[in-house]
Design a protein around this nucleic acid. Sequence first.
DNA 1: GAATTTTTGTGAAAAGATTATAAAATTGAG
DNA 2: CTCAATTTTATAATCTTTTCACAAAAATTC
Lengths: 210, 210
Amino acid sequence: MQIPFATIERLAIYVRCLRHLKEQGIKKISSFEMAQHTRTTPEQVRKDLSYFGKFGKTGEGYDVENLLKKLEKILRTKRKWNVAIIGAGSLGTALSKYRGFKEVGYDVKAMFDIDPEKINKKINGIPVYHIEKFSEITEKEDIEIAIVAVPVEAVSDVEEVIVKSKIKGILNFVPVTLNLKTRRRIVVLDVDLTQKLYIISYLIKNKWEE
Amino acid sequence: MQIPFATIERLAIYVRCLRHLKEQGIKKISSFEMAQHTRTTPEQVRKDLSYFGKFGKTGEGYDVENLLKKLEKILRTKRKWNVAIIGAGSLGTALSKYRGFKEVGYDVKAMFDIDPEKINKKINGIPVYHIEKFSEITEKEDIEIAIVAVPVEAVSDVEEVIVKSKIKGILNFVPVTLNLKTRRRIVVLDVDLTQKLYIISYLIKNKWEE
DNA sequence: GAATTTTTGTGAAAAGATTATAAAATTGAG
DNA sequence: CTCAATTTTATAATCTTTTCACAAAAATTC
């Protein structure tokens, strides 16, 4: 059976929530409490989990540590992933500092730019290479995921470089739909900050019923 | 009739696409081409637009400038919005530099922090205030939207400050579900970067059929 | 130890979203 | 001026996702 994509998205939020609970030393949680922490409903929580098995105990709820372990396995997030950031501007730099990534197993191994001022230096301890070395470095360092944070004008060059590499997943911050002409499957997720603001504006004005 | 939320999300992408086309001097576009630029299908484009009226001309397509104008009106994005950034760390600073916001009518008027080193100075020309002045400044400057980019530890303080203010919409970068105890409606949208990476990992491993 | 409470798991119903199809309108060729 | 080729619009059908409702199971209380 095909698992709803929305379920996968929520699973990632459950993992985040469970990590917090574990840190706080909380052992058990009910679907009701879980829903409160993740902006959803208890039924939704149970339904989402039911796609993968039975994790709870009737009358008692879920064991935080055990459920976390199971969900991490489902999302393949127990293993480490190496990441590259393309674009060493302010956004790229801020992302390289972002603590959260390393905490959950995503290790930024390299950054890429075209500015000679930045190349062969380190930003937050991460080496910055010229973009032409992208394939070489990502293969050597076993990097499978790239974060794209370049100005719009640079996108077509970046597309080209990515297509030639062995990158499998992309987190794209550029407000443009990437055009990757390749047979192999590359997973692309967009983070469009402007879009989010548009949607906020719309929701503010149109009292969305909940 | 209730418009599907997914439609609103795509509308924001259509607006982005149309802006690019307009800049390039393109006058007409068919639903087919539009779909290629926005990672969707022609049927979807037409269906989405049909919720709001008839914008196209049979056999000819849509007039770029006219359609853009209409969609901007629907999303209420023709008007200007004033924005505050809470947290003047690396992410907050990077966001304050982000060109895209101003280009599409979102003007960052103020930043807030608790670090005395940063307060009463300017970052990228934007004044930084102590967080305790949040209500005062946002009301004076007519700020309705706040971007939250603080460390996890600071969230509860920020929640308190927001609840007391008149802020209507929030773009939240902190990987925690905000807990805003208030009767009035505040629109919250989360940007969870870690979640996005989790999902990329999952999709890489589970060849998602398209 | 029986009754009550809590909470899960799941099938069925409802709602929401996408895709496919038929009808209508426009353009351009001949 | 008519016919064929496009391309939109409206609507119907299908598919997906969420919500609802309830039985079953475990824990707790009296």
